[in-house]
Amino acid sequence: MTEEELKAIIVAELKKVAPESDPSGLGADEDLREALDIDSFSFLRVLVGVSEHTGVDIPEADYGKVTTLAAMIGYLAVRQG
């Protein structure tokens, strides 16, 4: 998947938990949870969706490595099969 495709998947999952927001307008380095006011439950849902759409496993220990759009895209890009 290209970075654009990965971004589209992430944005779609963010939109599910924060329907009133516009995640595509987020800065690449903004903290996702802070910017969209997402709690740990909703963030887990986002990661579940992203993981299942990309086939990339995100171990719990790596949750801290996917806190921004840029970081998450980068994380997925190097791990996708």
């Binding site: 740990s40 887990l44 995100i58």
Partner: peptide
């Protein structure tokens, strides 16, 4: 964490 490490993401438990 050691419990969650053995589980797929969908089955993990929050603190």
């Amino acid at each position: 964490e050691s419990l969650n490490a053995r589980r797929p993401i969908r089955e993990r438990i929050l603190p």
